[in-house]
Nucleic acid binder design. Structure first.
Lengths: 209, 209
DNA sequence: ACATATTGTGAATTATTATTCATAATATGA
DNA sequence: TCATATTATGAATAATAATTCACAATATGT
């Protein structure tokens, strides 16, 4: 058995698991965690309810797995960009632009990531944080580091790295949010370059006062 | 009966209703809509379940009433500021500063407003929008108008009023969010003035490039 | 072809919770 | 005080949905 790749059987099982996850992603992202039943996931994925429990311990666990993979996929796009060997301003600029790809590739992914994440950040939930929250944290940490060193070099104003991170994330997430809500209405490239403009140079015309 | 003020009985009933709403606000804001049962609200408010149904048609309706009043209270603070007869920049500046009061006065209110609002914006919910969403819309519209006229006058860069509104709201909401999550950790006044700084003048030191 | 192991099934079980309603408590007015 | 109306109660009901498990289908190796 122990080949580098898995046995046919194992691969098949994997595929099944992923089919279930795909359906679950679709449903959860459309209707929210509490408004999707295991029945529904089972029907849509053409498995029996019992089968779902062969793959996941329960609904929570299935959801957690989903969030984990969403967070992972987003992180895979964003992290490399934050680690490129270019100057701080360029890294932030690339980071902003990368959101175009994120939007294009993974609408349901972000939909789920954003919606369930934003709300559960406040609401106390004894579950589903570990993986997901960690990714968010790591990205924010990375951003914060970039701002910190950028501030030392005099590229950025010293508005506090944390505040800069918070502001940029907020603007980006909100924008992504808006695009997903009304797809097609907004030019993504355009919007992102405006986010960049405002974030870097501000909204005032004469920054004198 | 028809006095300007209500009869003792009616006032009493009102008080009861408000007690229930207060408890519901506390619970919903802590645990989220789906994780609070009518039983729980009943126990905490020292009424019987049945009594809740004398005041509200059901759980959804109770929640909707709550969201309505939250939105109303927030709107009551924010709208007058957006309508003051001062120049556009000042109005936005005051708007930002007003969030200090919002945070100070109504923590559970905003907690609920933000958490349930952000998540349900994406998730399809066949319910609870009317009042709440309307308030959000109105405030955004007002902000957008201010930016538009400010842009005409050359006070703001022409980054599109919608984009400016989106960015500012995002930064403010995110900040409020963060403060609520870790109370005491952050100086609100300080944070808001940094939001203002970044939003107006940007994060770059030399806006030349 | 057969025995064995693995994987899938879905009706039945169990839990939870929103909602109802017959009844009790209380207030009101004669 | 008594009859009536109003308001509150909470055990019982009804729905919904997560989870289990005895069994069926299928695959694997001999």
């Amino acid at each position: 058995m122990a080949t580098a790749s898995l046995s046919r059987k194992e691969r098949e099982r994997l595929r099944h698991k992923e089919e279930i996850l795909a359906v679950a992603l679709k449903l959860f992202s459309e209707k929210g965690f509490h408004n999707v039943s295991m029945q529904e996931i089972a029907e849509e994925s053409e498995f029996a309810v019992g089968t779902l429990y062969k793959f996941f311990e329960g609904k929570e666990s299935l959801f957690a797995a989903l969030m984990g993979s969403c967070a992972g996929r987003i992180s895979d796009i964003l992290m490399p960009i934050l680690e490129e060997e270019v100057d701080e301003r360029k890294r932030i600029s690339n980071y902003i632009k990368a959101h175009e790809q994120i939007i294009a590739d993974h609408v349901p992914t972000i939909r789920l990531y954003l919606s369930e994440n934003l709300s559960s950040a406040l609401t106390v939930r004894p579950d589903v944080e570990p993986e997901t929250d960690a990714v968010r944290e790591i990205i924010h940490q990375k951003l914060s580091d970039i701002f910190k060193s950028g501030m030392r070099k005099g590229i950025f104003k010293d508005a506090g790295p944390w505040m800069a991170t918070l502001s940029l994330s907020a603007m980006l997430e909100s924008f992504v949010f808006a695009v997903i809500k009304s797809p097609g209405q907004i030019s993504v490239e355009d919007g992102l370059s405006r986010v960049e403009e405002i974030f870097f140079k501000g909204s005032l015309r004469h920054s004198s006062a």
